[in-house]
Simulated assay, not measured.
Amino acid sequence: MAISKERFNELLDRLSDKDFEPVSELMERLSQTSSISEIPLDDEPTTQEDLDAINKAHEAYLKGQLINLKNVEHELRN
Rank of each mutant, 00 (worst) to 15 (best):
M1R: 12
M1K: 15
A2M: 08
I3A: 04
S4W: 10
S4Q: 06
S4L: 08
F8G: 00
N9W: 07
E10A: 13
L11A: 02
L11M: 09
L12Y: 14
L12Q: 03
L12S: 06
L12T: 08
R14D: 00
R14K: 05
L15T: 07
S16P: 05
S16C: 03
S16T: 11
D17K: 02
K18P: 04
E21D: 12
E21A: 10
P22S: 05
V23K: 10
S24N: 13
S24L: 15
E25N: 15
L26W: 05
M27S: 03
M27R: 01
M27N: 00
E28N: 13
E28R: 12
R29K: 15
R29P: 05
R29I: 13
L30S: 09
L30C: 11
L30I: 12
L30T: 09
S31E: 09
Q32T: 01
T33N: 10
S34G: 15
S34M: 13
S34P: 07
I36Q: 02
I36N: 04
I36C: 02
I36L: 11
I36F: 07
E38V: 06
E38W: 00
I39M: 07
L41D: 06
L41G: 04
D43K: 12
D43C: 11
E44S: 15
P45E: 04
P45T: 06
T46L: 11
T47E: 11
Q48S: 14
Q48Y: 07
E49V: 15
D52N: 14
D52G: 10
A53D: 13
A53Y: 12
A53R: 14
A53N: 13
I54M: 03
N55M: 07
N55V: 08
K56C: 02
A57C: 00
Y61Q: 05
L62D: 09
L62E: 13
L62S: 12
L62C: 05
G64W: 09
G64Q: 08
Q65Y: 03
L66A: 10
I67F: 05
N68W: 01
L69A: 14
K70D: 08
K70S: 08
N71W: 01
N71C: 00
V72W: 02
V72K: 03
E73S: 14
E73W: 15
H74T: 15
H74W: 11
H74G: 08
E75H: 05
L76R: 06
L76S: 07
L76V: 07
R77N: 10
N78M: 05
N78S: 11
